[in-house]
Design a protein around this nucleic acid. Structure first.
Lengths: 345, 345
DNA sequence: GCGCGTATCCAAAGCGGTTTGGAATATCCG
DNA sequence: CGGATATTCCAAACCGCTTTGGATACGCGC
């Protein structure tokens, strides 16, 4: 353990009060003393004890990220890693700590209560919101600043969130495919209770309707976004009497699966069959270059993490600043995986 | 904020002392009182303030995970997410908090000093060790319990770690390929300064030597483990005058890239060319089924996270318990991506 | 009835900081 | 030079909990 304020003060022949004020930039201390104190602090490698400080000030200087992992489908969404990397950068710059909680969604409510009652953190980041997410109501009631990465429907109370424009993205992507003459377009989506999945489906359905294409339930898939899910889906759908000529994938991982499933059957992407995927710009799955492999709706989840952290810190600093919201637009990036619908034989 | 101990005590007509002892199971309190206190605590949704508690006890009840992210190669290793999910499960079961630090490796040393001097955590988990990692020495000197996920060479002081047997895994995998008649085996490895990459290369080299195959530097690749890296490598190596008939990949992501690179050239895995990959059992990249897609050296990184957390908690509980080490063996799982070396035309 | 052990509870002193309300010294001004 | 005003520092209370060292009351044996 390090030096305490008291020890430092004693070694300088000063009171703890003065040392505290000198280090925290209060005006009631002479410039000479402040300099002397600061130098001594560095020399002694003095760092104020976090717990004591936050007990005294009432601020925890920490943000919790609560990551739901249900026992049923134990998938850790790979976007968390990049989102958290972005947020962490902001936190350390602001002297905040990031507390991570992996929580089974069965006792999730208890986890939030606990976190707030114990005063462990000043704010909460909510991950993976579902369509009707009770956490928003719970956290509002608990009166702790929080920000949702994504949104949830059917909640009347206002709340702070950051999200990408899922609906518009998938609308555009679908529209783009329609303009290329595709009429059988499959939607390979995430779990149906996730809010983002619903919004993407809405965008998809609206674009189909605008193009006068009746939606086909067989072409709309929902599941955990793994690579084999993409593979399986491609292999299944291609056997349909009237198979899709284009696919919309909800993540790069799924898109890789689709691609593998299709190319195993000798299909050439962008000629025989088209794929558009959402691309979170995960660092180990870059979809870049002059002509990216996939045509994609692109948005950096790492950047979202940065902004989310900034917004949440603002909410913590001034709780009255009302609900903050940010809707990030995605860019539709043209890659090698799309082309006009093949002319029917 | 919740109820305080003092308030709870006042509402019961008891002293804070007695309430504290009642809740923490001390014997100096009557069964009747204890029952009364516990019930009141639940009714009032009382949770002891973490900061006050740990200030009083001197234990932070928290573990730091420090994740290095260098500005040069900003990759967030996808295994972190699953490792952390495993560790987090153990922590919450033991009432510990997980503090995450994303740290630029330039000021990494400062981050550890800070963390310890401030008393923010009781223990530190070290991620992504390099071959000569100075962090081990630093943390030993700071006198904080720590555990390395992986190992580092050339450190004389003993330290605690958990690792998979990288060398043995890649030895076995290489040997397996040799027995199938392969003599041109590429190693598509991670960054060369990472400790795991060195150990895997050693295993590979030893197996080659045992089989009487001189190593070819051209076939040994090192880079950040992205999918395009695998793709590019496959496309490059196949153009060699004497191209490899088998590949060893350091991760599923890289293996996917290799597979894509090869199948784009019309290669059939397991017949024309073989691939063995290391498989961390990432939840969104399952390599399972009756016949997994890839023959793989398999080891669950999530399980490693669990065990690592348990070990670190043990170190924190009894610092004298000496360095704890665990070497996890991998299993070599036969999949569809390997077969005998093709007979030369 | 007295002394003593035991059961039960409490007052007060920390833990390491911040912050309020002075006190002591220096500075200024008429 | 005396009093008002800054300037500079400090003692002590407090944040919410644990824990030491009693205090009180009770039961028991002699």
């Amino acid at each position: 353990m390090g030096v305490t304020l008291k020890q430092l003060a004693a070694s300088l022949g000063l009171s703890p009060t003065t040392v505290s004020r000198a280090l925290n930039g209060f005006p009631e201390v002479s410039a000479a003393t402040r300099k002397r104190v600061k130098e001594a602090a560095i020399r002694a490698n003095y760092h104020p004890n976090t717990r004591a400080k936050s007990l005294a000030t009432g601020r925890a200087q920490a943000i919790a990220h609560v990551i739901p992992v249900s026992t049923s489908h134990e998938i850790v969404n790979p976007v968390f890693a990049d989102f958290i990397a972005g947020a962490g950068e902001i936190y350390s710059r602001s002297g905040f700590e990031m507390v991570l909680r992996i929580v089974d969604d069965a006792d999730e409510s208890q986890a939030y209560r606990d976190l707030v009652a114990r005063g462990t953190v000043d704010g909460v980041m909510v991950h993976g919101p579902r369509t009707h997410d009770r956490r928003v109501e719970l956290l509002s009631r608990l009166g702790v600043p929080f920000l949702v990465h994504g949104r949830t429907s059917d909640v009347n109370a206002p709340y702070s969130w950051i999200d990408i424009n899922n609906q518009r993205s998938f609308h555009r992507a679908t529209q783009f495919l329609c303009e290329f003459g595709h009429r059988r377009i499959a939607l390979v989506n995430g779990m149906s209770d996730m809010d983002f999945a619903v919004r993407r489906r809405n965008g998809y359905l609206q674009a189909l309707e605008a193009a006068g294409i009746p939606p086909d339930p067989v072409l709309m898939r929902h599941a955990e976004m793994t690579e084999p899910y993409g593979y399986r889906t491609a292999q299944e759908l291609i056997q349909l009497p009237d198979p899709p000529t284009a696919y919309l994938a909800s993540s790069m991982i799924v898109a890789y699966g689709l691609r593998r499933g299709l190319s195993d059957l000798g299909v050439t992407l962008g000629r025989d069959i088209s794929i558009i995927t959402h691309d979170d710009e995960l660092s180990y799955l870059p979809n870049d270059g002059d002509v990216p492999m996939f045509t994609a709706t692109r948005s950096s989840v790492r950047e979202a993490g940065k902004r989310a952290a900034q917004m949440l810190l603002k909410l913590v600093a001034s709780p009255g600043s009302g609900p903050l919201t940010e809707l990030m637009e995605t860019s539709l990036v043209l890659g090698a995986s799309t082309g006009p619908a093949p002319v029917r034989g």
